[in-house]
Simulated assay, not measured.
Amino acid sequence: MKTLIIYDDTGYIYLQMSGMYQVPQGGIQYLETEVSEGKILKSIDISKTPHIPILEDMPKTDLEKTQNQLLETQAQLADLQEQILLKENGGM
């Protein structure tokens, strides 16, 4: 199986991957940056020097989406209950 191995001048291996991958074209660059919690690295803008990381919000997990839907449903239910109570107490 073909495997891409990325290593430095000392022979230290940073990454190896098999299957589908793109072979690096030209030199390999590196960049140290802070990636805030809740963000993921999308790409690197190489049109500027120094190169700039492009970050985006981390996609919500299915659990987070479900929790948000539950909160919305609970809020709607509370609103409906309040409307019913108002109608029962004189229709204000």
Rank of each mutant, 00 (worst) to 15 (best):
G91H: 06
N89S: 14
Q76S: 09
T33P: 01
I40K: 10
Q81W: 01
T33S: 11
L77W: 05
E82C: 00
M58K: 15
M20K: 11
K60A: 12
L41Y: 07
K39C: 04
I52M: 06
Q25R: 15
D45M: 07
K87C: 02
I13W: 01
K60M: 13
I52N: 05
Y14A: 03
N68P: 02
H51A: 13
N68G: 08
Y7M: 14
T61C: 06
K87P: 00
K39R: 15
S18C: 07
Q22L: 08
M20L: 09
A75V: 00
D79Q: 04
T61S: 12
M1A: 12
L70V: 11
K87E: 10
D8K: 01
T10S: 14
Q25I: 13
E72M: 02
D9N: 14
D45Y: 05
Q83M: 00
Y21S: 04
Y30W: 02
L77I: 11
M17W: 00
A78E: 10
Q74E: 14
D9W: 04
G11P: 06
Q16W: 08
L31K: 10
P24N: 10
Q29F: 07
L80I: 09
K65N: 15
E88L: 14
L41Q: 11
G11I: 06
E34C: 01
Q83R: 09
Q22W: 02
L80S: 10
L31P: 03
E88S: 12
G26V: 05
G11A: 05
Q69Y: 10
E34H: 05
I40A: 04
G19L: 00
L85D: 15
Q83S: 00
D79P: 00
I40T: 09
S36G: 13
Y12M: 10
P53D: 00
K87A: 10
I52S: 03
K48L: 13
T66C: 13
Y12F: 12
E37L: 06
M20F: 03
Y14E: 08
Y21H: 08
I5S: 07
L71H: 09
Q25N: 15
A78W: 00
A78R: 03
G11S: 04
K48Q: 15
Q29E: 14
G27W: 03
L55P: 07
P53E: 02
A78S: 09
